[in-house]
C-alpha cells in the first residue's frame, strides 16, 4: 500500500483553481520528484497536502487515513514533514532553537534525533548557537531539512531545495537528500532543476497546467523524447 495517495485532487487559492484532478502516489521508501514548467502548480500540490491551499475536492490519504482538513500540527504528528521553498528557517532563533522548534509537538526535545541531525549536517552543530539569519543559503536549506527531520517523518516533502544555490552546493544537497532517502525516509520533491531531479529520483511526475501529464520512472522520463523537448530544453 502506498504511504501517500492523492487522487483526483482539485485545489487552488481562494476562488482560483490551480490543480485539476491530480493523482500522486508514493511508496514507503520511494523518492518521487514533481517537475514541470513555472506556474504548473508544483508547489500547490505540497501546500494542498499540508492544508495550506484551498482544498476543492479529491482525496489525500496518508498512511491509510484521510488527512484533508487536518491542521498542520496534526499532519506533522502523523509523520509528514514539509520544507517550504522560501523563508524556511526562523532567522532570529539560533540554529539549535530552530531544530528544537521542529520537535515542538513532543514534550521533550529528542536528544537522539538532534544527534542524528547534527551527524547528518555537521555544519549545523558547528553553528548551533549562531542565529539562523546569519547562515548562508545552503546552510539554511540544511537547517530547514534538519528541522523537518527532528520528528523522524515517514515522508519528507521538499519544495525546490536547490533554488538559489550555487551549482557545487546543489550537488552536495542532492547527495544529502539521497542519503536521507537511503536511511528509509520517503521523499517527495518539487524541483525546478528537472534533469538533476529526474536523474536521482525513483519516479517522476511531470505536471503541466495543474494536471499530471507524464508519470514514469525518472530514467524513462529523461529518455522520453516528448518530455525532453517540452520541458527539459531538448
Amino acid at each position: 500500500m502506498a504511504l501517500l495517495e492523492v487522487s483526483g485532487l482539485d485545489a487552488g487559492y481562494g476562488d482560483l483553481q490551480i490543480l485539476e484532478d491530480v493523482d500522486l502516489e508514493i511508496g514507503g521508501d520511494e523518492y518521487v520528484a514533481i517537475v514541470g514548467p513555472n506556474g504548473a502548480g508544483k508547489s500547490t500540490v505540497m501546500k494542498s497536502i499540508f492544508g495550506l491551499a484551498t482544498y476543492m475536492g479529491g482525496r489525500i490519504v496518508f498512511d491509510g487515513e484521510a488527512i484533508d482538513g487536518l491542521r498542520p500540527e496534526e499532519i506533522i504528528h502523523r509523520g509528514l514533514g514539509y520544507v517550504p521553498q522560501d523563508d524556511n528557517v526562523f532567522p532570529s532563533l539560533s540554529v539549535e532553537e530552530n531544530l528544537e522548534m521542529g520537535a515542538y509537538i513532543l514534550s521533550e526535545v529528542p536528544g537522539d534525533r538532534l544527534r542524528e541531525v547534527y551527524d547528518r549536517f555537521p555544519i549545523l552543530e558547528e553553528r548551533r548557537s549562531q542565529t539562523a539569519g546569519d547562515l548562508s543559503g545552503g546552510q539554511r536549506q540544511m537547517l530547514a531539512m534538519g528541522r523537518a527531520l527532528m520528528l523522524d517523518p515517514a515522508l519528507l516533502m521538499l519544495d525546490e531545495p536547490s533554488a538559489g544555490l550555487a551549482p557545487d552546493l546543489v550537488e552536495e544537497l542532492f547527495d544529502r537528500i539521497d542519503a536521507i532517502n537511503d536511511a528509509g525516509t520517503a521523499i517527495l520533491m518539487v524541483e525546478q532543476n528537472a534533469t538533476e531531479a529526474l536523474d536521482r529520483c525513483d519516479r517522476g511526475y511531470v505536471l503541466v497546467q495543474g494536471r499530471n501529464r507524464y508519470v514514469d520512472t525518472g530514467e524513462r522520463l529523461l529518455e522520453n523524447e516528448q518530455v525532453r523537448q517540452d520541458f527539459l530544453g531538448g
Partner: peptide, 22 residues
C-alpha cells in the same frame, strides 16, 4: 520553549504553523 515559540511566531507565522507550533 514557550518563549522560543513566541520568537519563532514573531519571525514567521506560516513557518511556525507548518513546523507544528500550535
Amino acid at each position: 520553549k514557550l518563549g522560543t515559540a513566541m520568537r519563532a511566531m514573531a519571525d514567521n507565522q506560516d513557518l511556525a504553523l507548518i513546523t507544528g507550533i500550535p
